[in-house]
């Protein structure tokens, strides 16, 4: 029931209008954010060029992976920013107001705000992916296919990160305070996913394949796109993992909400 995409769209456009009212402020925010990300990218590039590539990945291949990874996690940071830092809803009881709306709680929370300040991540991710693809002469192969592959990797990654961040927020229904865990569950894996996962010990790889399946949101699609020993079928697998992660997270969220309505804490 209901036109939830319309609701979300009106929040997104109203927020954009409000942000653009202070145009220069907004532009500066974006610029600062891009500078931060470039610094982060430089670290990756420096490490990679010092050792002439990592785990058989050339510098530009790693740059490509970095770009794809920031595109993936950038989606949740812009469009689902409320789940990030969700414990404020539980600590000061704001979640009560969410439940008084005629819409599923997931929709109401998502539509609370859109964080355009984080959009730098998407702008920069697109630029990096494009640049790396050009330096790697990927365009010469087949433009439309390449584009479709990148898009598919991006969507899978976006779904995976969205799922992770929703599931993470849901933990708050049991523990209330979750922000302290964010470096372990969100930021750490986010940074780790910028590198080829084969450099990590097996146990950590297992986590990135099984528990927080970020491997399918950057590393695996990148291996397919860069022809590093995986057939295109793995793009479909990644897509499946993305869908499953998101669906699982939404199910978990509903259990969390049910717990909230019976305990109120």
């Amino acid at each position: 029931m209901g036109d939830w995409i319309g609701v979300y769209k009106s929040v997104a456009s109203a927020t954009l209008r409000a942000r653009l009212a202070y145009r220069w402020n907004f532009v500066l925010d974006l610029v600062f954010q891009i500078i931060m990300l470039i610094a982060e990218l430089l670290v990756v590039v420096l490490i990679a060029s010092a050792v002439h590539g990592i785990a058989g990945w050339s510098v530009y291949q790693i740059v490509f992976l970095f770009g794809l990874s920031s595109l993936s996690s950038g989606l949740y940071r812009v469009f689902a920013s409320e789940f990030h830092g969700f414990d404020k809803y539980l600590v000061n009881g704001e979640f009560d107001s969410v439940l008084t709306r005629p819409a599923p709680a997931l929709v109401v929370v998502s539509a609370r705000s859109v964080d355009y300040e984080q959009a730098g991540m998407l702008v920069q991710g697109l630029a990096i992916v494009g640049y790396a693809a050009w330096r790697l002469h990927l365009w010469q192969i087949d433009g439309p296919i390449l584009l479709a592959q990148i898009l598919s990797g991006w969507i899978s990654g976006g779904a995976i990160w969205l799922g992770i961040v929703i599931a993470f927020a849901t933990l708050g229904f049991w523990t209330t305070r979750i922000d302290d865990l964010a470096p372990v569950v969100l930021y750490g894996p986010e940074t780790a996913a910028n590198y080829p996962l084969s450099i990590y010990p097996r146990a950590i790889q297992a986590i990135f394949y099984g528990i927080l399946p970020v491997a399918f949101g950057g590393y695996i699609p990148a291996r397919v796109i860069l022809h590093k020993g995986l057939s295109p079928i793995w793009l479909l697998v990644s897509f499946g993992v993305g869908a499953a992660t998101l669906a699982g997270a939404v199910g978990f969220w509903q259990i969390g909400v049910r717990r909230y309505t019976s305990t109120g804490s």
């Binding site: 209901g2 036109d3 319309g6 609701v7 009106s10 929040v11 109203a14 927020t15 209008r17 409000a18 709306r101 005629p102 819409a103 539509a111 705000s113």
Partner: peptide
Amino acid sequence: DLPLHESFTILRRMY
């Protein structure tokens, strides 16, 4: 963070 009237626009859609 939005001007007051924007809240009404959003609520109109929601309800």
